[in-house]
Amino acid sequence: MTYKLISNGKTLKGETTTEAVDAATAEKVFKQYANDNGVDGEWTYDDATKTFTVTE
């Protein structure tokens, strides 16, 4: 399945996607992506749209 990340960081804003077997796997990928880009904030997940959002 395709999962989307919306980043509302102070230094990184935008969207990216990943293919993953489940939401937990996608979350690990996205949290590593955010960490690699210096984004640390509040996370939410919408199962209906398969979208994670991180806001700093």
Rank of each mutant, 00 (worst) to 15 (best):
T17A: 07
E42K: 10
T49D: 04
K31S: 03
D46C: 09
A26I: 02
N35C: 15
E42S: 10
G38M: 06
A26T: 01
T17S: 10
T44K: 09
G14T: 14
V29Q: 07
A48M: 10
E19P: 05
K50T: 03
K4L: 09
N8A: 09
K13Q: 13
K13M: 11
A34F: 04
A26D: 00
Q32M: 09
N8L: 13
I6Y: 06
K31H: 08
N8E: 08
T49F: 04
T55N: 10
D40I: 14
Y33K: 03
E56Q: 10
T16Y: 15
K13T: 11
A48W: 07
K13E: 08
D47Q: 08
D46V: 04
Y3G: 03
E15R: 05
G9T: 15
A20E: 04
G41R: 01
K13C: 15
A23T: 07
N37I: 11
V29M: 09
E19T: 14
L5E: 03
K13D: 07
A24E: 11
T25S: 13
Q32K: 14
D46N: 09
K13Y: 11
K4F: 13
S7D: 04
K28W: 08
A23C: 12
G38A: 06
F52N: 00
G14W: 15
D40Y: 15
Q32D: 08
K4R: 12
T53H: 07
A34M: 10
T51D: 00
T51V: 06
T16S: 10
G41F: 04
K31P: 00
Y45G: 00
N35P: 01
A23N: 05
A48N: 11
E15C: 15
Y33I: 09
D22R: 01
T53A: 05
T51E: 03
K50V: 02
Y3P: 02
I6N: 04
L12H: 12
K13G: 07
A48R: 11
K28A: 13
T11A: 11
F30Y: 01
S7T: 15
T51H: 02
D40W: 15
V29S: 05
T55R: 06
T51I: 06
T18V: 14
T55A: 06
K10V: 12
T25I: 07
N8V: 13
S7K: 04
D47C: 08
I6G: 02
D46M: 03
V21F: 12
A26M: 02
E56T: 09
T16H: 14
D40V: 14
G41W: 05
N8R: 08
E19A: 07
A23Y: 12
N37Q: 11
T18C: 15
D22Q: 02
M1G: 12
W43N: 00
T11S: 12
L12F: 15
A48T: 12
T44H: 12
K31F: 05
T51F: 02
F30N: 00
F30E: 00
Y45S: 01
T2N: 06
Y33F: 13
A23F: 11
K4D: 03
E56A: 08
T11E: 09
T49I: 06
T17W: 14
D47H: 10
V29K: 09
T51G: 01
E42V: 14
T25W: 07
N35T: 13
K28Q: 11
V29R: 08
G9N: 09
A24T: 09
T44V: 08
K31Q: 08
N35V: 13
V54E: 02
D22S: 07
V29H: 12
V29E: 06
T44C: 10
F52P: 01
L12V: 10
G9P: 05
S7Q: 08
F52A: 00
K50L: 10
E15L: 13
T2C: 14
W43C: 02
D36N: 09
G41P: 03
V21M: 12
T49K: 06
T11Y: 14
W43S: 00
T55S: 09
Q32W: 05
D22V: 02
K4V: 12
E15S: 10
L5Q: 02
Y33E: 02
A23Q: 11
E15Y: 13
T17R: 07
V21W: 12
E42D: 13
A34K: 00
N8G: 06
T53E: 05
T17Q: 10
D46T: 04
S7I: 15
T25Y: 06
G38V: 03
Q32H: 06
L12P: 05
G9H: 11
A26P: 00
E15V: 14
G38N: 09
E42G: 05
D47Y: 07
L12S: 08
K50Q: 10
G9D: 05
A20D: 02
T18M: 11
T11D: 09
D47P: 14
L12I: 11
E19C: 14
T49S: 10
L5D: 03
G38T: 04
T49P: 00
A20K: 00
A34Q: 02
I6K: 07
N37A: 10
T11G: 11
W43H: 00
Y3E: 03
K13W: 11
Y3F: 13
D47T: 07
D40N: 13
G14A: 12
M1D: 14
E15H: 09
E56C: 07
K4P: 03
D40Q: 14
Y45H: 00
T53S: 07
T53P: 01
K10F: 12
E42N: 09
K50H: 12
T2K: 09
K13A: 09
T53F: 12
Y3I: 02
Y3T: 02
F30R: 00
T49W: 03
S7E: 04
A34P: 00
T17K: 07
K4M: 08
F52G: 01
E19Q: 14
T2R: 08
F52Y: 05
F52T: 01
T16K: 11
E19R: 13
I6T: 05
T16V: 14
Y3K: 01
G14M: 14
E56D: 09
D36M: 10
A26W: 00
K10P: 15
M1R: 11
F52E: 01
V29T: 10
A48I: 11
V54C: 05
N35Y: 14
Y33R: 03
D36H: 07
D47V: 09
E19F: 15
A48C: 10
D47R: 06
Y33G: 01
T55F: 10
T18Y: 11
A48P: 06
L5V: 03
G38L: 06
D46W: 03
T51P: 00
A20P: 01
V29W: 14
N35G: 09
T11R: 07
K28C: 09
F52W: 06
F52H: 01
K28I: 11
L12C: 12
T25Q: 12
T51A: 04
G14Y: 14
T16G: 04
G9C: 14
F30A: 00
G38Y: 06
A20C: 10
S7H: 14
I6A: 05
T2H: 07
N35D: 11
A20H: 02
Y3L: 02
V54T: 02
F30M: 02
T44F: 10
Y3H: 03
L5N: 01
S7C: 15
L12K: 07
N35H: 15
K4Y: 15
T44W: 07
E15D: 06
T11C: 14
V39E: 03
T55E: 06
T2W: 10
W43P: 00
N8H: 12
D40H: 14
V39K: 02
T11N: 12
E15W: 13
K50E: 02
I6F: 07
V39W: 14
N8Y: 14
G38D: 07
A24Q: 12
T2S: 07
V39G: 03
A34N: 02
K10E: 08
Q32G: 06
K28Y: 09
K28D: 05
G14H: 14
Y45K: 01
N37L: 13
D36F: 08
T49A: 06
M1N: 14
G9S: 12
V21G: 09
A48Y: 10
Y33T: 04
E42Q: 11
E42L: 13
V39L: 14
K50N: 07
I6V: 13
G14K: 12
